[in-house]
């Protein structure tokens, strides 16, 4: 570089310090999610389904419990029954909308509860290790030994039917897998140097868990939990189908599928409708969790 260029460079007006976009963790997650159209579509679909369920009383064209012997098992598009009628002549569309309330609650609430409880046990087991880990994880293993459907049927069977018991059953069934995911993630984080660095500042265990461990364990657990929503919906439907969940005449996707089973030769399409609703909802949740997993990976 000649002296002239050096001088010229020196005489350049000082550039203002570049400002850096402040984008937090969730900001960067959203930034990646923004271009993932499949995930966005599924997210929108879920919001629509949830919205329809919440506003069912206003959206539903008819009373979901009003039966009519004259209009039993009518096909899709019959008069003003958009999706036909069920075996008691009730409007399928209205029942589907109302049924979403129970089914979505059964999908989301137990998963939320199990994430908190199972996640807590998992983090404690993973962080403290040793005897604490053994007691918690071996207990979870006992629950793991039974297939989840069988376990749900067993618990529900002994508790009896009803929405509260169904909720309880699903929560208990979902705790072990979430606990294990949280435990694995925690024991990985626990051995990282930044936890040792935090310990060497004299921080309390609670502070380390909340500031350093939870934040790193959160994303695998949340992603896994979102896959469980569809599992939970299907399990709940299964329990209702077996008569261990909500009792008729409550509108619920699983229960509707169960009662329409006998009419499958008469009105196959109408009978399949609740199943299709379950299918679409669970696929949407699965795809969203897939997209979330990718978006939440910091190093992606």
């Amino acid at each position: 570089m000649t002296d002239a260029t050096a001088d010229a460079l020196r005489d350049l007006p000082a550039r203002p310090a570049p400002t850096v976009r402040v984008r937090g963790y969730w900001g960067s997650v959203w930034n990646r999610l923004r271009y993932d159209y499949v995930t966005l579509f599924c997210l929108a679909l879920i919001l629509v389904i949830i919205g329809l369920a919440i506003f069912a009383p206003w959206v539903a064209p008819m009373d979901p419990y009003k039966s009519s012997m004259a209009h039993r098992l009518k096909p899709i598009g019959y008069r003003n029954y958009l999706l036909g009628t069920d075996e008691q002549g009730r409007d399928m569309l209205s029942r589907l909308l109302y049924g979403g309330r129970v089914s979505l609650t059964m999908g989301i609430l137990p998963v939320g509860l199990a994430t908190i409880i199972g996640g807590l046990f998992g983090v404690v087991a993973g962080y403290f290790g040793g005897a604490v880990n053994m007691v918690i994880m071996r207990t979870m293993d006992i629950f793991f030994a039974f297939p989840s459907v069988l376990l749900a049927v067993a618990i529900s069977g002994s508790l009896g039917g009803g929405i509260t018991n169904q909720l309880l059953t699903l929560t208990v069934v979902l705790i072990p897998p979430l606990c294990r995911v949280a435990e694995t993630a925690t024991s990985q984080v626990r051995n990282m140097d930044f936890v040792d660095a935090a310990r060497s500042t004299g921080a309390s265990t609670a502070s380390i868990l909340f500031t350093h461990v939870l934040i790193n364990v959160m994303s695998p657990v949340l992603v896994y939990a979102s896959t469980l929503v569809s599992v939970s919906i299907i399990l709940a439907s299964g329990l209702s189908f077996l008569g261990l969940g909500v009792s008729p005449p409550t509108a619920d996707w699983g229960l509707m599928l169960s009662t329409l089973r006998q009419s499958i030769y008469v009105q196959p399409l109408v009978s399949a409708i609740p199943g299709i609703a379950i299918l679409i909802t669970s696929i949407a949740f699965n795809l969203v969790s897939d997209g979330l997993r990718q978006a939440m990976d910091v190093r992606a």
């Binding site: 140097d193 930044f194 040792d196 660095a197 350093h212 934040i215 910091v298």
Partner: peptide, 11 residues
Amino acid sequence: FQDSSSSLNPR
């Protein structure tokens, strides 16, 4: 610490 990548909290 030695490993500069694992000694900072990634989040």
